[in-house]
């Protein structure tokens, strides 16, 4: 789901289990390609997934120091636990989720 500066707290920080957050930019071809994977994973895996456009939501991007996009971050109980910066394959995302669900 698409999350904004206004809804980030409610959807991610106040969420009681694991959330995968995809921080992406409007200029960013790798982000566009990851978007397809995220859309597929949303249907296939039992983990909450949120997308944040860093250009449209500068407050959240600054708060979490998103210095490059795409950034994929795992939040557990509202705390960032792991992040990966730069393009990743679907397999690498699944590995992240596996670690998070342990």
């Amino acid at each position: 789901m698409e999350v904004t500066d206004k809804t980030f707290k409610q959807e991610v920080e106040n969420y009681d289990w694991v959330v995968l957050v995809d921080f992406w930019g409007s200029w960013c071809p790798p982000c566009k390609t990851i978007e397809e994977v995220i859309a597929r994973l949303e249907k296939e895996v039992d983990v909450k997934i949120c997308s944040v456009n860093v250009n449209r939501n500068p407050i959240t991007a600054k708060k979490y120091d998103i210095y490059g996009v795409p950034t994929l971050a795992i939040f557990r109980n509202g705390k960032e636990e792991e992040r990966s910066v730069g393009s990743v394959t679907e397999g690498q995302i699944l590995e992240m989720l596996e670690r998070a669900n342990k």
């Binding site: 409007s26 250009n55 500068p58 407050i59 210095y67 490059g68 996009v69």
Partner: peptide
Amino acid sequence: GNVDFTACGQSRNIEAENAQI
């Protein structure tokens, strides 16, 4: 205003102002 032009690159200007576009 408040358009963080550097944000289009893979780096962001983290000094950008905190405000909605």
